[in-house]
Nucleic acid binder design. Structure first.
Length: 261
DNA sequence: ATGACAAACTTTGTTTGA
C-alpha cells in the first residue's frame, strides 16, 4: 500500500496538477493539506471518477485537509482533540481495512507558528502537545497508524539548506524541536529517515528568490508511524519532479510504501 | 540593503504562508 502526503496549496489552483499526479502515481491513499476550500466547494467529481473515496475537513480561504483512498473508509474523525475552541481545519483521521488488519491514516497540517512572538507560536506549541496526547492514546490500541502531513517542523540540520538562515524560525528552534522529539519519543518512527540517511533532501522550496532552482529547500512533510506500522515499512521517497511542473505547489508529495494491501 | 512569489478574499489592496 502506497500512502502519499502532499501540501497542494489550494485545490482550486492545483486541481489539474493533482489529477495528473493521481493518474501518474495512482497512490492507494493521498493525504492532502492546505486545500483552502470549504467542503461544499471542493471539486470532487474528477477525483471520484478516478476511483477514490474522498473525505475533507475544510474551511474558508486557509488550511483544510483531505483524505483520498481507493478503499472505502470504515470511519472518519475530524479535528484534533484537546481544544474545543480550535476552529482551524488541520486534522482528519480515516480507518481502512487491510490484509494486515486495521490501518489508521491521518492527514494533518501542523500550524506554521510564525512570527514567533505572536499568539501564533504558542498556538503551534499547544497543537503539538495535543498531538502528543493523541499519539499516546492511539498507541494504547497497539494498531498500525500513519500520521502523515505538513508538520512545519525541520527535524535536524540535515533537513535544511542553511542551518543559520532557519535557526530561530518557528519551524526550527529549540521549543519546536523539543516537542517534535517528544512526539517521536511516544514511540513513533519517522519513515523517511528510517529509509534514507542522505542529508539535504527537501520537500518544500519557497516560491521566492529562486529557491527551487538553487535547491534552497527544507524537509517539513513527514510520515510518523506507530510500531505496528513501522513493522510494515518498505520505503519512503520524495517525489521532487512535481516541483518542476507548470503552476506547482511549493511542496512536493512524499510517498510511503507499507507491506500491506 | 532590499525584495523577491503565490493564493484567496477582504478584490485593483490585504492577509497568509514558510
Amino acid at each position: 500500500m502506497r500512502i502519499a502526503t502532499w501540501n497542494i496549496n489550494g485545490i482550486k489552483a492545483r486541481h489539474d496538477n493533482l489529477l495528473r499526479w493521481l493518474e501518474q502515481e495512482s497512490p492507494d491513499v493521498a493525504c492532502l493539506q492546505e486545500i483552502k476550500s470549504v467542503d461544499e466547494n471542493f471539486p470532487r467529481k474528477a477525483i471520484e471518477d478516478l476511483g477514490y473515496h474522498l473525505e475533507t475537513h475544510g474551511q474558508k480561504s486557509f488550511n483544510g485537509v483531505a483524505l483520498l483512498s481507493k478503499k472505502p473508509f470504515e470511519e472518519i474523525n475530524r479535528r484534533l482533540p484537546g481544544d474545543d475552541s480550535d476552529e482551524q481545519a488541520r486534522f482528519i483521521e480515516g480507518i481502512l481495512s487491510t490484509d494486515k488488519g486495521p490501518l489508521r491514516v491521518v492527514s494533518l497540517y501542523l500550524p506554521n507558528g510564525n512570527p514567533v512572538g505572536t499568539e501564533k507560536y504558542p498556538y503551534k506549541l499547544g497543537w503539538m502537545r495535543r498531538l502528543i496526547e493523541w499519539s499516546k492514546q492511539r498507541l494504547e490500541l497497539e494498531e498500525a497508524f500513519v500520521l502523515a502531513g505538513d508538520y512545519n517542523v525541520i527535524p535536524t540540520a540535515h533537513d535544511t539548506h542553511d542551518h543559520d538562515a532557519w535557526w530561530g524560525d518557528a519551524l526550527y528552534r529549540e521549543e519546536t524541536l523539543d516537542l517534535f522529539r517528544e512526539l517521536l519519543a511516544t514511540g513513533l518512527t519517522e519513515a523517511f529517515r528510517a529509509c534514507n540517511d542522505t542529508p539535504h533532501l527537501y520537500s518544500f522550496w519557497d516560491y521566492q528568490a529562486g529557491a527551487w532552482p538553487r535547491n534552497m529547500g527544507i524537509r517539513i512533510d513527514h510520515h510518523l508511524l506507530s510500531p505496528e506500522a513501522a513493522d510494515l515499512l518498505k520505503g519512503c521517497e520524495i517525489l521532487k519532479d512535481v516541483r518542476d511542473w507548470e503552476k506547482p505547489s511549493d511542496h512536493v508529495p512524499v510517498m510511503l510504501t507499507l507491506d500491506c494491501e
